[in-house]
Design a protein around this nucleic acid. Structure first.
Length: 108
DNA sequence: GCTCTGACTATTC
DNA sequence: CGAATAGCCAGAG
């Protein structure tokens, strides 16, 4: 469905799933990958690096609620703008996403 | 077709 | 809790 440029089938799947994540919600790399039955958390991250500018990459975070490396601040702005539940943490970003409430799955 | 790299994850110390 | 290690998959050269 998305009209994003696809370089491979895997990229297509990742972009498709990420594009379906509603505002105020987030998914972990593992969840996104597992959604289409292909556990490639690292690969998902790479798709974000390559095509992250074409999808709400900030809604895709690491397991544990940590935002993507080197993008914590940029993601934080989006979370606050969308009302994503954040939690203060002693991380480099100084915060993390509350997966308990913000974690979202395609099925609901 | 092989090798290196990376916005990851789980396990172990 | 933090750092180090191993395993994982896909893209680029």
């Amino acid at each position: 469905m998305p009209v994003f440029a696809r370089d491979g089938e895997y990229t297509d799947q990742v972009l498709d799933v990420v594009a379906q994540i509603p505002p105020g919600r987030v998914m972990t790399y593992g969840d996104v990958a597992w959604t289409f039955g292909r556990p490639g958390a690292r690969a998902v991250g790479m798709v974000m690096r390559l095509h992250g500018s074409s999808v709400p990459w900030w809604r895709v975070i690491r397991a544990g609620g940590h935002p993507p490396t080197c993008h914590e601040q940029a993601a934080r702005e989006h979370y606050e703008a969308e009302g994503t539940p954040l939690v203060p943490a002693p991380t480099a970003a100084g915060y993390r996403v509350d997966l308990t409430a913000a974690r979202w799955l395609p099925d609901g």
